[in-house]
């Protein structure tokens, strides 16, 4: 029953996002929508397609969480954020989780009071240069002009890298990734630096990808992952274990195609616990037993999401590399479902 008309009208207009600090899980359920912060457009990771539907590797995490919590992978409000707005959007409660290739660092975790729930992509900062520049290593870049997206850790890494190698450089700071590419293509800078995954994505998008080389140096560690606010451990658990469910699903061989069948019960105890035919893990999270089943059913397990969005078969063409599952010698590893 509406007691106050004004509030009612405002709610209808979608102008209030409801409670922000109480319990995020309850808020999301009450609202029936997950507010998920994404970037304003990085090919393969998060970008709206021609119909305005958000697609990508980071978006898939949002969709999995929405499916697990709300039983609807489309019940998401995608909130585009820039490097500047992302943390305040999360801190002020405008978004429930941030899935926007954000680097897990000490100060963001501790000082900015966020909780990184895991790593969904192990990245490192690299450089891309035009092939005809004749540069084969980042250590030859003394005096170069570098295009860089502001508001990210790449700025600090860049300053550190050039200082430690005793080189000088000229930074061309740019607001968005696509403008950085525009600048780079126009020749306003010699090299473009950002995470290597994004470099690969941008390079794949260029008219003649072969005219550009990604230099071999990796100048930083960039563990990218979704994050939530500090202090709401329940919600943090939901997002963390949804991500882990996707990773575990790959380990156990659960795919979007066979998840329905597997959920009926198998001989593997961990799979049964994961998919809810055994134990009550979902209930412990505050969800129902089928949560992981739904999360996996949206766009498959971690491996499938990777392959479909940024993998070797896509235009982005990233190899699994360190992002292979641990049994294949990679770093992608989930704690057990027990």
């Amino acid at each position: 029953m509406k007691t106050s008309f004004i509030l009612g009208a405002v709610t209808v207009a979608g102008l209030t996002a409801g409670a922000a600090f109480a319990g995020t899980l309850d808020d999301v359920k009450a609202r029936g929508k997950l507010n998920c912060g994404v970037s304003t457009g990085v090919p393969g990771f998060a970008e709206p397609d021609a119909n305005g539907v958000w697609q990508g590797f980071d978006v898939a995490v949002c969709r999995a969480v929405a499916a697990a919590v709300l039983n609807d992978s489309d019940a998401i409000e995608f909130v585009p954020t820039t490097g500047k707005t992302r943390f305040t959007a999360l801190a002020s409660g405008e978004i429930d989780m941030l899935a926007r290739n954000t680097t897990w660092t000490f100060s963001r975790d501790v000082d900015l009071k966020f909780e990184f729930v895991g790593v969904n992509y192990y990245d490192g900062q690299g450089f891309m240069a035009k092939a005809d520049l004749g540069v084969s290593s980042a250590t030859e870049l003394d005096g170069a002009t570098v295009c860089i997206q502001t508001g990210t850790t790449t700025e600090l890494n860049l300053a550190d890298f050039f200082r430690s190698n005793n080189m000088s450089y000229e930074a061309v700071p740019v607001e968005t990734g696509s403008e950085a590419v525009t600048n780079y293509m126009a020749g306003a800078c010699d090299v473009f630096t950002t995470d290597r995954s994004a470099l690969a994505a941008r390079r794949a998008n260029m008219e003649n990808p072969n005219e550009h080389v990604v230099l071999p140096e990796i100048v930083s560690k960039e563990p990218l992952g979704p994050l939530v606010r500090h202090g709401d451990n329940n919600w943090g658990d939901v997002v963390r274990w949804t991500l882990n469910a996707l990773i575990t699903a790959e380990e156990l061989g659960v795919t979007a195609a066979n998840v329905a069948e597997m959920a009926k019960g198998t001989k593997i105890p961990e799979m049964n616990r994961l998919l809810g035919s055994e134990g009550n893990l979902g209930e412990m999270l505050g969800l129902d037993a089928d949560w992981a089943h739904r999360a996996i059913a949206v766009s498959g397990n971690y491996g499938e999401i990777f392959e479909n969005n940024i993998g070797a078969s896509t235009i982005i063409g990233l190899a699994r590399g360190v992002n292979a599952k641990w049994t294949d010698g990679g770093l992608i590893y989930s704690p057990p479902f027990r």
């Binding site: 500047k84 801190a91 100060s107 963001r108 502001t150 508001g151 990210t152 700071p173 740019v174 607001e175």
Partner: peptide, 24 residues
Amino acid sequence: ALAVGYMDITGTLGGITLNQTGRA
């Protein structure tokens, strides 16, 4: 200025410093 990457006060204090320290 931040639209063209000119480092004025909005770009330094209101831009990178704000981002890196989170002291919005």
